[in-house]
Design a protein around this nucleic acid. Sequence first.
DNA 1: CAAGGAATAT
DNA 2: TATATTCCTT
Length: 582
Amino acid sequence: MDATAFPYGLRVLVVDDDPTWLKILEKMLRKCSYEVTTCGLARVALDILRERKNKFDIVISDVNMPDMDGFKLLEHIGLEMDLPVIMMSIDGETSRVMKGVQHGACDYLLKPVRMKELRNIWQHVYRKKMHEVKEIEGNDSCDDLQILRNSFEGLDEKSLFMRSDSDTMRKRKDVDKDHADQESSDGNTVKKARVVWSVDLHQKFVNAVNQIGFDKVGPKKILDLMNVPGLTRENVASHLQKYRLYLSRLQKQNEERILGAARQDFSHKGTSENLNLRSSFQEQPSNIANGYPHASQNIQTQANMLDSQLEDTKSTVPLPVPDKKRTLASDAADSQNVTSASSLGGVLSFKSMPVNQDRKPSETMILECQAWTGGIPSKQFMQYPKHNHERCDLLGDYSCLPKPDLEHPVGPSNLYAPPPLISMSCGMEGDARDFSDVKPAIMDCIKSLSPALTCTVDSVSVQLSDTVVTSIDGDLKSSGVDGLPSIKDCCLDQTNSQGSLRPSQEPSIIGSTELASLPEDLPSYPLHGVSLENIGLSSIDLLNYSDAMILSGLQSNWYDDLEFSSEMMDYPSIDECLFASS
DNA sequence: CAAGGAATAT
DNA sequence: TATATTCCTT
Protein backbone atom coordinates (compact mmCIF):
# COMPACT_ATOMS: atom_id res chain seq x y z
CA MET A 1 0.00 0.00 0.00
CA ASP A 2 1.16 3.27 -0.56
CA ALA A 3 0.68 6.61 0.71
CA THR A 4 -2.03 7.70 -1.52
CA ALA A 5 -4.62 10.05 -0.46
CA PHE A 6 -6.93 7.67 1.17
CA PRO A 7 -7.64 9.18 4.53
CA TYR A 8 -8.44 12.53 3.17
CA GLY A 9 -11.97 13.37 2.72
CA LEU A 10 -12.95 10.86 5.31
CA ARG A 11 -16.52 11.64 6.23
CA VAL A 12 -16.88 12.05 9.92
CA LEU A 13 -19.95 12.61 12.01
CA VAL A 14 -19.21 14.13 15.37
CA VAL A 15 -21.72 13.88 18.13
CA ASP A 16 -21.33 15.88 21.29
CA ASP A 17 -23.76 17.83 23.39
CA ASP A 18 -21.17 20.39 24.25
CA PRO A 19 -21.11 22.99 21.50
CA THR A 20 -17.68 24.10 22.47
CA TRP A 21 -16.25 20.70 22.03
CA LEU A 22 -18.17 20.24 18.90
CA LYS A 23 -16.56 23.27 17.46
CA ILE A 24 -13.11 22.31 18.53
CA LEU A 25 -13.46 18.84 17.19
CA GLU A 26 -14.81 20.08 13.96
CA LYS A 27 -11.91 22.39 13.51
CA MET A 28 -9.40 19.73 14.32
CA LEU A 29 -10.98 17.22 12.05
CA ARG A 30 -11.07 19.65 9.22
CA LYS A 31 -7.43 20.23 9.71
CA CYS A 32 -7.03 16.61 9.02
CA SER A 33 -8.83 17.24 5.79
CA TYR A 34 -11.78 15.21 6.78
CA GLU A 35 -15.28 16.12 5.88
CA VAL A 36 -17.04 16.90 9.10
CA THR A 37 -20.64 16.95 10.12
CA THR A 38 -21.54 17.86 13.66
CA CYS A 39 -24.50 17.07 15.72
CA GLY A 40 -25.47 17.90 19.27
CA LEU A 41 -27.93 15.17 20.01
CA ALA A 42 -27.58 11.47 19.83
CA ARG A 43 -31.03 10.95 18.42
CA VAL A 44 -30.46 13.52 15.80
CA ALA A 45 -27.24 11.82 14.96
CA LEU A 46 -29.06 8.60 14.44
CA ASP A 47 -31.53 10.27 12.20
CA ILE A 48 -28.82 11.83 10.16
CA LEU A 49 -27.11 8.52 9.79
CA ARG A 50 -30.29 6.83 8.73
CA GLU A 51 -31.16 9.51 6.29
CA ARG A 52 -27.82 9.79 4.77
CA LYS A 53 -26.83 6.26 4.69
CA ASN A 54 -23.43 5.61 3.31
CA LYS A 55 -22.59 9.22 3.61
CA PHE A 56 -20.34 8.76 6.52
CA ASP A 57 -17.28 6.72 7.14
CA ILE A 58 -16.94 7.02 10.84
CA VAL A 59 -18.68 8.46 13.88
CA ILE A 60 -17.13 10.09 16.87
CA SER A 61 -19.43 10.46 19.80
CA ASP A 62 -19.25 11.58 23.33
CA VAL A 63 -20.37 9.06 25.84
CA ASN A 64 -22.44 11.42 27.83
CA MET A 65 -25.37 12.57 25.87
CA PRO A 66 -28.41 14.13 27.39
CA ASP A 67 -30.95 12.54 25.17
CA MET A 68 -29.54 9.13 24.83
CA ASP A 69 -26.88 7.10 26.43
CA GLY A 70 -23.80 7.19 24.30
CA PHE A 71 -23.55 3.45 24.50
CA LYS A 72 -27.04 3.13 23.25
CA LEU A 73 -26.17 5.21 20.28
CA LEU A 74 -23.17 3.06 19.77
CA GLU A 75 -25.33 0.00 19.67
CA HIS A 76 -27.75 1.44 17.23
CA ILE A 77 -25.07 2.51 14.90
CA GLY A 78 -23.35 -0.79 15.09
CA LEU A 79 -26.57 -2.58 14.44
CA GLU A 80 -28.00 -0.44 11.77
CA MET A 81 -25.14 0.80 9.77
CA ASP A 82 -22.13 -0.88 10.98
CA LEU A 83 -19.99 2.16 11.00
CA PRO A 84 -16.88 2.41 13.08
CA VAL A 85 -17.62 4.47 16.13
CA ILE A 86 -15.16 6.22 18.36
CA MET A 87 -16.32 7.09 21.82
CA MET A 88 -14.92 9.83 23.93
CA SER A 89 -15.39 11.34 27.31
CA ILE A 90 -13.67 13.52 29.79
CA ASP A 91 -12.90 10.83 32.22
CA GLY A 92 -10.94 7.77 31.50
CA GLU A 93 -12.58 5.51 33.94
CA THR A 94 -11.63 2.05 32.96
CA SER A 95 -15.06 0.59 33.33
CA ARG A 96 -16.51 3.11 30.96
CA VAL A 97 -13.86 2.61 28.42
CA MET A 98 -14.39 -1.07 28.71
CA LYS A 99 -18.08 -0.66 28.31
CA GLY A 100 -17.55 1.40 25.24
CA VAL A 101 -15.37 -1.21 23.72
CA GLN A 102 -17.79 -3.93 24.63
CA HIS A 103 -20.53 -2.09 22.92
CA GLY A 104 -18.54 -1.98 19.79
CA ALA A 105 -16.55 1.20 19.95
CA CYS A 106 -13.48 0.87 17.85
CA ASP A 107 -11.64 3.39 19.92
CA TYR A 108 -12.06 5.44 23.01
CA LEU A 109 -10.63 8.90 23.26
CA LEU A 110 -10.17 11.07 26.25
CA LYS A 111 -10.83 14.72 26.13
CA PRO A 112 -9.11 16.84 25.40
CA VAL A 113 -8.64 14.94 22.23
CA ARG A 114 -5.43 15.49 20.44
CA MET A 115 -4.77 16.17 16.91
CA LYS A 116 -2.56 13.16 16.74
CA GLU A 117 -5.39 10.94 17.68
CA LEU A 118 -7.80 12.41 15.26
CA ARG A 119 -5.35 12.16 12.49
CA ASN A 120 -5.29 8.50 12.97
CA ILE A 121 -8.93 7.70 13.10
CA TRP A 122 -9.00 6.81 9.46
CA GLN A 123 -7.30 3.61 10.36
CA HIS A 124 -10.54 2.30 11.75
CA VAL A 125 -12.30 2.88 8.52
CA TYR A 126 -9.46 1.43 6.63
CA ARG A 127 -9.28 -1.63 8.77
CA LYS A 128 -12.93 -2.23 8.47
CA LYS A 129 -12.89 -1.95 4.76
CA MET A 130 -9.96 -4.24 4.63
CA HIS A 131 -11.88 -6.84 6.47
CA GLU A 132 -14.86 -6.47 4.27
CA VAL A 133 -12.77 -6.85 1.24
CA LYS A 134 -11.07 -9.89 2.49
CA GLU A 135 -14.24 -11.51 3.42
CA ILE A 136 -15.56 -11.05 -0.01
CA GLU A 137 -12.64 -11.50 -2.23
CA GLY A 138 -9.81 -12.41 -0.04
CA ASN A 139 -6.85 -12.38 -2.29
CA ASP A 140 -3.60 -10.85 -2.86
CA SER A 141 -3.09 -7.54 -1.35
CA CYS A 142 -2.90 -5.74 -4.59
CA ASP A 143 -6.31 -6.64 -5.66
CA ASP A 144 -7.54 -5.96 -2.24
CA LEU A 145 -6.30 -2.53 -2.37
CA GLN A 146 -8.00 -1.92 -5.61
CA ILE A 147 -11.20 -3.25 -4.37
CA LEU A 148 -10.80 -1.33 -1.27
CA ARG A 149 -10.45 1.80 -3.22
CA ASN A 150 -13.47 1.07 -5.19
CA SER A 151 -15.39 0.29 -2.14
CA PHE A 152 -14.87 3.76 -1.00
CA GLU A 153 -16.96 4.97 -3.79
CA GLY A 154 -17.01 8.67 -3.83
CA LEU A 155 -14.32 8.88 -1.32
CA ASP A 156 -11.67 8.57 -3.87
CA GLU A 157 -12.66 11.65 -5.60
CA LYS A 158 -12.80 13.60 -2.50
CA SER A 159 -9.55 12.57 -1.19
CA LEU A 160 -6.98 14.84 -2.43
CA PHE A 161 -4.63 15.24 0.30
CA MET A 162 -1.73 13.32 1.30
CA ARG A 163 -0.80 13.57 4.81
CA SER A 164 2.68 14.09 5.86
CA ASP A 165 2.79 11.09 8.04
CA SER A 166 0.89 8.80 5.90
CA ASP A 167 2.84 5.77 6.53
CA THR A 168 -0.09 3.72 6.09
CA MET A 169 -1.42 1.32 8.56
CA ARG A 170 1.21 1.95 11.03
CA LYS A 171 0.10 1.05 14.36
CA ARG A 172 -1.01 3.83 16.39
CA LYS A 173 1.44 4.70 18.97
CA ASP A 174 0.29 4.72 22.42
CA VAL A 175 -0.83 8.01 23.35
CA ASP A 176 2.17 9.50 24.84
CA LYS A 177 0.75 12.01 27.04
CA ASP A 178 4.15 13.11 27.91
CA HIS A 179 4.62 14.84 24.68
CA ALA A 180 3.66 18.31 25.20
CA ASP A 181 1.68 18.83 22.17
CA GLN A 182 -0.12 22.00 22.50
CA GLU A 183 -1.84 21.04 19.40
CA SER A 184 -4.40 19.31 21.44
CA SER A 185 -7.14 21.75 21.52
CA ASP A 186 -6.59 24.05 18.71
CA GLY A 187 -4.52 22.07 16.35
CA ASN A 188 -2.50 25.13 15.57
CA THR A 189 0.63 23.21 15.52
CA VAL A 190 -0.52 20.85 12.93
CA LYS A 191 0.77 21.40 9.52
CA LYS A 192 -1.69 21.68 6.82
CA ALA A 193 -2.04 18.66 4.71
CA ARG A 194 -0.35 18.98 1.42
CA VAL A 195 -2.53 18.91 -1.57
CA VAL A 196 -1.78 16.19 -3.96
CA TRP A 197 -2.82 17.00 -7.45
CA SER A 198 -4.17 13.68 -8.35
CA VAL A 199 -5.54 12.89 -11.71
CA ASP A 200 -8.99 13.62 -10.48
CA LEU A 201 -8.10 16.84 -8.97
CA HIS A 202 -6.16 17.97 -11.94
CA GLN A 203 -9.03 16.98 -14.09
CA LYS A 204 -11.26 19.21 -12.14
CA PHE A 205 -8.78 21.94 -12.38
CA VAL A 206 -8.54 21.61 -16.10
CA ASN A 207 -12.25 21.48 -16.46
CA ALA A 208 -12.54 24.65 -14.51
CA VAL A 209 -9.91 26.33 -16.58
CA ASN A 210 -11.64 25.30 -19.70
CA GLN A 211 -14.91 26.56 -18.51
CA ILE A 212 -13.58 29.88 -17.51
CA GLY A 213 -11.43 30.39 -20.46
CA PHE A 214 -7.74 30.24 -20.44
CA ASP A 215 -7.31 33.95 -20.66
CA LYS A 216 -9.66 34.73 -17.88
CA VAL A 217 -8.63 32.23 -15.32
CA GLY A 218 -7.76 33.18 -11.87
CA PRO A 219 -7.13 31.06 -8.87
CA LYS A 220 -10.28 32.24 -7.25
CA LYS A 221 -12.50 31.41 -10.14
CA ILE A 222 -10.97 28.06 -10.59
CA LEU A 223 -11.30 27.33 -6.96
CA ASP A 224 -14.96 28.17 -7.02
CA LEU A 225 -15.60 26.10 -10.03
CA MET A 226 -13.75 23.17 -8.75
CA ASN A 227 -15.76 23.21 -5.64
CA VAL A 228 -13.44 21.00 -3.73
CA PRO A 229 -13.69 21.21 0.01
CA GLY A 230 -10.50 22.04 1.70
CA LEU A 231 -8.78 23.33 -1.34
CA THR A 232 -7.54 26.88 -1.01
CA ARG A 233 -6.98 29.62 -3.42
CA GLU A 234 -3.31 29.34 -2.75
CA ASN A 235 -3.36 25.72 -3.68
CA VAL A 236 -4.97 26.53 -6.92
CA ALA A 237 -2.71 29.46 -7.55
CA SER A 238 0.28 27.31 -7.06
CA HIS A 239 -1.02 24.70 -9.39
CA LEU A 240 -1.99 27.27 -11.91
CA GLN A 241 1.48 28.63 -11.83
CA LYS A 242 2.86 25.29 -12.60
CA TYR A 243 0.30 24.71 -15.24
CA ARG A 244 1.12 27.93 -16.98
CA LEU A 245 4.72 27.12 -16.84
CA TYR A 246 3.97 23.91 -18.50
CA LEU A 247 1.94 25.50 -21.22
CA SER A 248 4.51 28.10 -21.95
CA ARG A 249 7.12 25.50 -22.25
CA LEU A 250 4.94 23.69 -24.63
CA GLN A 251 4.48 26.81 -26.57
CA LYS A 252 8.13 27.35 -26.72
CA GLN A 253 8.65 23.97 -28.10
CA ASN A 254 6.11 24.55 -30.74
CA GLU A 255 7.72 27.72 -31.76
CA GLU A 256 11.04 26.17 -31.97
CA ARG A 257 9.74 23.48 -34.07
CA ILE A 258 8.13 25.89 -36.37
CA LEU A 259 11.20 27.93 -36.61
CA GLY A 260 13.22 24.96 -37.40
CA ALA A 261 10.80 24.02 -40.04
CA ALA A 262 10.87 27.45 -41.47
CA ARG A 263 14.43 27.42 -42.30
CA GLN A 264 14.55 24.69 -44.65
CA ASP A 265 17.82 23.31 -44.79
CA PHE A 266 18.15 20.10 -46.46
CA SER A 267 21.63 19.40 -45.69
CA HIS A 268 22.20 16.69 -43.41
CA LYS A 269 25.25 14.93 -42.84
CA GLY A 270 25.85 12.55 -40.18
CA THR A 271 23.42 10.79 -38.33
CA SER A 272 21.69 12.26 -35.55
CA GLU A 273 23.26 11.56 -32.38
CA ASN A 274 20.50 11.93 -30.10
CA LEU A 275 17.39 10.24 -30.46
CA ASN A 276 14.90 11.65 -28.31
CA LEU A 277 11.90 9.82 -27.69
CA ARG A 278 9.67 11.58 -25.52
CA SER A 279 6.10 11.85 -24.93
CA SER A 280 3.98 13.90 -22.80
CA PHE A 281 0.42 14.64 -22.30
CA GLN A 282 -0.65 17.70 -23.80
CA GLU A 283 -3.68 19.62 -23.96
CA GLN A 284 -4.12 22.73 -25.79
CA PRO A 285 -6.81 24.85 -24.53
CA SER A 286 -8.41 26.54 -27.37
CA ASN A 287 -7.98 29.71 -25.62
CA ILE A 288 -4.41 29.18 -25.74
CA ALA A 289 -4.71 30.99 -28.93
CA ASN A 290 -4.81 34.16 -27.05
CA GLY A 291 -1.61 33.59 -25.39
CA TYR A 292 0.05 31.63 -28.01
CA PRO A 293 -1.09 32.51 -31.42
CA HIS A 294 1.47 30.42 -33.01
CA ALA A 295 0.50 27.28 -31.47
CA SER A 296 -3.12 27.70 -32.00
CA GLN A 297 -2.63 28.47 -35.58
CA ASN A 298 -0.64 25.52 -36.10
CA ILE A 299 -3.18 23.45 -34.47
CA GLN A 300 -5.98 24.83 -36.41
CA THR A 301 -4.28 24.20 -39.59
CA GLN A 302 -3.64 20.71 -38.84
CA ALA A 303 -6.94 19.91 -37.45
CA ASN A 304 -8.69 19.25 -40.63
CA MET A 305 -6.25 16.89 -41.89
CA LEU A 306 -6.30 14.96 -38.85
CA ASP A 307 -9.91 14.51 -38.99
CA SER A 308 -9.84 13.08 -42.37
CA GLN A 309 -7.03 10.90 -41.50
CA LEU A 310 -8.71 9.69 -38.55
CA GLU A 311 -11.56 8.67 -40.60
CA ASP A 312 -9.35 6.78 -42.87
CA THR A 313 -7.58 5.09 -40.20
CA LYS A 314 -10.71 4.05 -38.67
CA SER A 315 -12.08 2.45 -41.68
CA THR A 316 -8.88 0.83 -42.51
CA VAL A 317 -8.18 -0.67 -39.26
CA PRO A 318 -11.21 -1.09 -37.24
CA LEU A 319 -10.44 -2.21 -33.84
CA PRO A 320 -13.04 -3.11 -31.40
CA VAL A 321 -12.44 -1.28 -28.29
CA PRO A 322 -12.85 -4.19 -26.04
CA ASP A 323 -10.33 -6.13 -27.91
CA LYS A 324 -8.03 -3.35 -27.74
CA LYS A 325 -7.98 -3.33 -24.11
CA ARG A 326 -7.53 -6.92 -23.93
CA THR A 327 -4.80 -6.87 -26.39
CA LEU A 328 -2.96 -4.24 -24.65
CA ALA A 329 -3.07 -5.99 -21.46
CA SER A 330 -2.09 -9.30 -22.74
CA ASP A 331 0.50 -8.10 -25.11
CA ALA A 332 2.03 -5.60 -22.97
CA ALA A 333 4.51 -7.91 -21.52
CA ASP A 334 5.62 -9.16 -24.83
CA SER A 335 5.73 -5.91 -26.49
CA GLN A 336 7.79 -4.63 -23.81
CA ASN A 337 10.61 -6.86 -24.60
CA VAL A 338 10.07 -7.58 -28.12
CA THR A 339 7.85 -5.54 -30.19
CA SER A 340 8.33 -2.12 -29.08
CA ALA A 341 11.77 -2.35 -28.01
CA SER A 342 12.96 -3.86 -31.14
CA SER A 343 11.00 -1.70 -33.39
CA LEU A 344 11.99 1.41 -31.79
CA GLY A 345 15.41 0.28 -31.40
CA GLY A 346 15.61 -0.06 -35.06
CA VAL A 347 14.36 3.31 -35.71
CA LEU A 348 16.34 4.83 -33.11
CA SER A 349 19.42 3.08 -33.93
CA PHE A 350 20.23 5.68 -36.39
CA LYS A 351 22.25 8.09 -34.75
CA SER A 352 23.39 11.30 -36.02
CA MET A 353 26.46 13.14 -35.32
CA PRO A 354 26.43 15.22 -32.35
CA VAL A 355 25.59 18.66 -33.13
CA ASN A 356 25.30 21.83 -31.35
CA GLN A 357 23.23 21.50 -28.42
CA ASP A 358 21.63 24.66 -29.38
CA ARG A 359 20.28 23.19 -32.38
CA LYS A 360 18.85 20.39 -30.65
CA PRO A 361 15.34 21.47 -31.10
CA SER A 362 15.68 21.59 -34.78
CA GLU A 363 17.27 18.29 -34.80
CA THR A 364 14.64 16.59 -33.07
CA MET A 365 11.66 15.16 -34.42
CA ILE A 366 8.67 16.11 -32.61
CA LEU A 367 5.62 14.23 -32.50
CA GLU A 368 2.67 15.95 -31.29
CA CYS A 369 -0.51 14.38 -30.96
CA GLN A 370 -3.68 15.71 -29.82
CA ALA A 371 -6.57 13.57 -29.79
CA TRP A 372 -9.91 14.39 -28.66
CA THR A 373 -13.02 12.78 -29.05
CA GLY A 374 -15.83 14.16 -30.81
CA GLY A 375 -14.79 17.59 -30.02
CA ILE A 376 -13.65 16.72 -26.67
CA PRO A 377 -10.29 17.99 -25.99
CA SER A 378 -7.89 15.86 -24.35
CA LYS A 379 -7.67 16.79 -20.84
CA GLN A 380 -4.64 15.27 -19.54
CA PHE A 381 -1.59 17.10 -19.77
CA MET A 382 -0.01 17.58 -16.60
CA GLN A 383 1.98 15.08 -14.91
CA TYR A 384 0.25 13.04 -12.42
CA PRO A 385 1.60 12.12 -9.15
CA LYS A 386 4.06 9.46 -9.55
CA HIS A 387 3.18 7.45 -6.59
CA ASN A 388 4.62 4.17 -7.03
CA HIS A 389 4.20 2.30 -10.12
CA GLU A 390 2.32 -0.45 -8.69
CA ARG A 391 -0.49 -1.63 -10.64
CA CYS A 392 -2.98 -1.04 -8.01
CA ASP A 393 -1.99 2.49 -7.68
CA LEU A 394 -2.31 3.14 -11.27
CA LEU A 395 -5.63 1.65 -11.28
CA GLY A 396 -6.66 3.65 -8.42
CA ASP A 397 -5.38 6.82 -9.81
CA TYR A 398 -6.78 6.52 -13.17
CA SER A 399 -9.77 4.47 -12.66
CA CYS A 400 -11.63 7.34 -11.33
CA LEU A 401 -11.07 9.52 -14.26
CA PRO A 402 -14.26 10.67 -15.62
CA LYS A 403 -15.15 9.68 -19.03
CA PRO A 404 -14.68 12.50 -21.33
CA ASP A 405 -18.02 12.20 -22.84
CA LEU A 406 -19.74 12.39 -19.63
CA GLU A 407 -17.71 14.91 -17.98
CA HIS A 408 -16.85 17.15 -20.75
CA PRO A 409 -19.79 17.68 -22.80
CA VAL A 410 -18.79 19.65 -25.69
CA GLY A 411 -20.87 22.38 -26.88
CA PRO A 412 -20.55 25.25 -29.14
CA SER A 413 -20.03 27.32 -26.15
CA ASN A 414 -17.05 25.40 -25.29
CA LEU A 415 -14.39 27.11 -27.13
CA TYR A 416 -11.98 24.88 -26.17
CA ALA A 417 -11.84 22.02 -28.26
CA PRO A 418 -8.70 21.74 -30.05
CA PRO A 419 -8.55 19.47 -32.90
CA PRO A 420 -6.70 16.35 -32.59
CA LEU A 421 -3.41 16.58 -34.00
CA ILE A 422 -0.23 14.91 -34.33
CA SER A 423 2.62 16.48 -35.87
CA MET A 424 6.02 15.30 -36.28
CA SER A 425 8.84 17.33 -37.23
CA CYS A 426 12.13 16.10 -38.02
CA GLY A 427 15.33 17.59 -38.53
CA MET A 428 18.54 16.31 -39.48
CA GLU A 429 21.57 16.76 -37.81
CA GLY A 430 22.92 19.91 -38.29
CA ASP A 431 20.43 21.92 -39.65
CA ALA A 432 17.77 21.41 -41.68
CA ARG A 433 14.99 20.06 -40.86
CA ASP A 434 11.95 20.60 -41.86
CA PHE A 435 9.70 18.57 -42.55
CA SER A 436 6.61 18.96 -42.26
CA ASP A 437 4.36 18.87 -39.83
CA VAL A 438 2.56 16.21 -40.12
CA LYS A 439 -0.41 15.00 -39.54
CA PRO A 440 -0.72 11.79 -38.34
CA ALA A 441 -3.52 9.96 -37.54
CA ILE A 442 -4.62 8.89 -34.39
CA MET A 443 -6.44 5.96 -34.41
CA ASP A 444 -8.84 4.73 -32.27
CA CYS A 445 -7.83 6.92 -29.72
CA ILE A 446 -10.28 9.07 -30.98
CA LYS A 447 -12.94 8.05 -28.90
CA SER A 448 -11.46 9.21 -25.96
CA LEU A 449 -8.55 10.90 -24.89
CA SER A 450 -6.15 8.79 -23.45
CA PRO A 451 -3.15 9.50 -21.56
CA ALA A 452 -0.03 9.63 -23.33
CA LEU A 453 0.68 6.27 -22.18
CA THR A 454 -2.03 4.94 -24.19
CA CYS A 455 -1.10 6.81 -27.15
CA THR A 456 2.36 5.77 -26.99
CA VAL A 457 1.45 2.30 -26.78
CA ASP A 458 -0.82 2.46 -29.62
CA SER A 459 1.38 4.16 -31.96
CA VAL A 460 4.58 2.74 -31.08
CA SER A 461 4.50 -0.53 -29.66
CA VAL A 462 1.30 -1.92 -29.77
CA GLN A 463 -1.04 -3.14 -31.93
CA LEU A 464 -3.96 -1.41 -31.12
CA SER A 465 -3.71 1.23 -33.21
CA ASP A 466 -2.21 2.42 -35.94
CA THR A 467 -1.25 5.49 -36.17
CA VAL A 468 0.74 8.01 -36.36
CA VAL A 469 2.26 9.61 -38.78
CA THR A 470 4.05 12.14 -39.88
CA SER A 471 5.52 13.74 -42.51
CA ILE A 472 9.01 13.35 -43.07
CA ASP A 473 11.20 15.63 -44.79
CA GLY A 474 12.14 14.64 -48.21
CA ASP A 475 15.65 15.09 -47.31
CA LEU A 476 15.38 12.74 -44.67
CA LYS A 477 14.59 10.24 -47.09
CA SER A 478 17.36 11.03 -49.33
CA SER A 479 19.73 11.24 -46.57
CA GLY A 480 18.28 8.19 -45.48
CA VAL A 481 20.21 5.48 -44.29
CA ASP A 482 19.20 2.60 -46.24
CA GLY A 483 20.29 0.29 -43.71
CA LEU A 484 17.78 1.57 -41.47
CA PRO A 485 16.13 -1.19 -39.83
CA SER A 486 12.59 -1.38 -40.65
CA ILE A 487 10.24 -0.50 -38.10
CA LYS A 488 8.38 -3.39 -37.12
CA ASP A 489 5.52 -1.62 -35.73
CA CYS A 490 5.42 1.11 -38.08
CA CYS A 491 4.84 1.05 -41.63
CA LEU A 492 5.43 3.95 -43.72
CA ASP A 493 2.77 4.97 -45.87
CA GLN A 494 2.36 7.87 -47.96
CA THR A 495 -0.31 10.15 -47.27
CA ASN A 496 -1.44 13.15 -48.97
CA SER A 497 -3.08 14.45 -46.06
CA GLN A 498 -1.08 17.45 -46.36
CA GLY A 499 -1.67 19.05 -49.64
CA SER A 500 1.34 21.12 -49.46
CA LEU A 501 3.59 18.25 -49.21
CA ARG A 502 4.42 16.10 -52.03
CA PRO A 503 3.34 12.68 -51.42
CA SER A 504 6.70 11.32 -51.82
CA GLN A 505 7.99 13.56 -49.26
CA GLU A 506 5.36 12.89 -46.87
CA PRO A 507 5.43 9.42 -45.78
CA SER A 508 3.36 8.64 -42.91
CA ILE A 509 4.17 6.12 -40.46
CA ILE A 510 1.48 3.98 -39.41
CA GLY A 511 1.88 1.73 -36.60
CA SER A 512 0.78 -1.66 -37.41
CA THR A 513 1.17 -4.86 -35.77
CA GLU A 514 2.61 -6.69 -38.59
CA LEU A 515 5.88 -5.81 -39.87
CA ALA A 516 5.02 -7.57 -42.97
CA SER A 517 2.38 -5.14 -43.58
CA LEU A 518 4.85 -2.60 -44.57
CA PRO A 519 4.46 -1.63 -48.08
CA GLU A 520 7.41 -2.63 -50.01
CA ASP A 521 7.61 0.52 -51.81
CA LEU A 522 8.12 2.15 -48.60
CA PRO A 523 11.66 2.21 -47.71
CA SER A 524 12.52 2.53 -44.24
CA TYR A 525 13.28 5.98 -43.49
CA PRO A 526 16.00 6.74 -41.30
CA LEU A 527 14.99 8.96 -38.61
CA HIS A 528 17.59 11.10 -37.25
CA GLY A 529 17.21 12.51 -33.94
CA VAL A 530 13.80 11.55 -33.42
CA SER A 531 11.86 12.64 -30.59
CA LEU A 532 8.35 12.15 -29.86
CA GLU A 533 6.97 14.94 -28.01
CA ASN A 534 3.84 15.92 -26.63
CA ILE A 535 1.77 13.11 -27.35
CA GLY A 536 -1.49 14.23 -26.17
CA LEU A 537 -3.66 11.68 -25.69
CA SER A 538 -6.56 10.88 -24.70
CA SER A 539 -9.01 8.72 -23.69
CA ILE A 540 -8.99 7.68 -20.44
CA ASP A 541 -11.42 5.04 -20.78
CA LEU A 542 -9.47 3.70 -23.55
CA LEU A 543 -6.50 3.56 -21.51
CA ASN A 544 -5.68 0.39 -20.07
CA TYR A 545 -4.40 1.33 -16.80
CA SER A 546 -2.65 -1.76 -16.05
CA ASP A 547 -0.69 -1.18 -19.10
CA ALA A 548 0.46 2.10 -18.05
CA MET A 549 2.71 0.39 -15.75
CA ILE A 550 3.96 -1.79 -18.38
CA LEU A 551 4.52 1.09 -20.54
CA SER A 552 6.79 2.67 -18.20
CA GLY A 553 8.71 -0.43 -18.15
CA LEU A 554 8.61 -0.52 -21.81
CA GLN A 555 9.88 2.85 -22.14
CA SER A 556 12.76 2.20 -20.00
CA ASN A 557 13.57 -0.61 -22.21
CA TRP A 558 13.68 1.66 -25.09
CA TYR A 559 16.01 3.80 -23.36
CA ASP A 560 18.15 0.96 -22.48
CA ASP A 561 18.26 -0.36 -25.91
CA LEU A 562 18.95 2.89 -27.40
CA GLU A 563 21.65 3.87 -25.17
CA PHE A 564 20.49 7.30 -24.99
CA SER A 565 22.91 9.91 -24.35
CA SER A 566 22.83 11.55 -21.09
CA GLU A 567 21.04 14.33 -22.67
CA MET A 568 18.42 12.05 -23.65
CA MET A 569 18.05 10.96 -20.21
CA ASP A 570 16.94 14.36 -19.37
CA TYR A 571 13.72 13.68 -20.91
CA PRO A 572 11.16 12.50 -18.63
CA SER A 573 9.81 9.16 -18.98
CA ILE A 574 6.32 8.84 -20.07
CA ASP A 575 4.98 8.98 -16.69
CA GLU A 576 6.99 11.86 -15.83
CA CYS A 577 6.26 13.96 -18.68
CA LEU A 578 2.69 14.23 -18.34
CA PHE A 579 3.17 17.50 -16.93
CA ALA A 580 6.24 18.91 -17.67
CA SER A 581 9.51 18.60 -17.05
CA SER A 582 12.51 19.85 -18.15
C1' DC B 1 -8.18 44.74 1.74
C1' DA B 2 -8.50 40.96 -1.64
C1' DA B 3 -6.52 38.83 -5.48
C1' DG B 4 -3.00 37.51 -8.84
C1' DG B 5 1.33 36.13 -9.77
C1' DA B 6 6.46 35.81 -9.44
C1' DA B 7 9.84 34.45 -6.45
C1' DT B 8 11.35 31.74 -3.02
C1' DA B 9 11.09 28.18 0.57
C1' DT B 10 10.36 23.54 2.05
C1' DT C 1 10.24 17.73 -7.72
C1' DA C 2 5.87 19.36 -6.36
C1' DT C 3 3.60 22.11 -3.61
C1' DA C 4 3.54 25.87 -0.05
C1' DT C 5 4.53 30.28 1.38
C1' DT C 6 6.03 34.84 0.94
C1' DC C 7 6.17 39.10 -1.08
C1' DC C 8 5.05 42.54 -4.21
C1' DT C 9 1.81 44.68 -7.34
C1' DT C 10 -2.69 45.76 -8.83
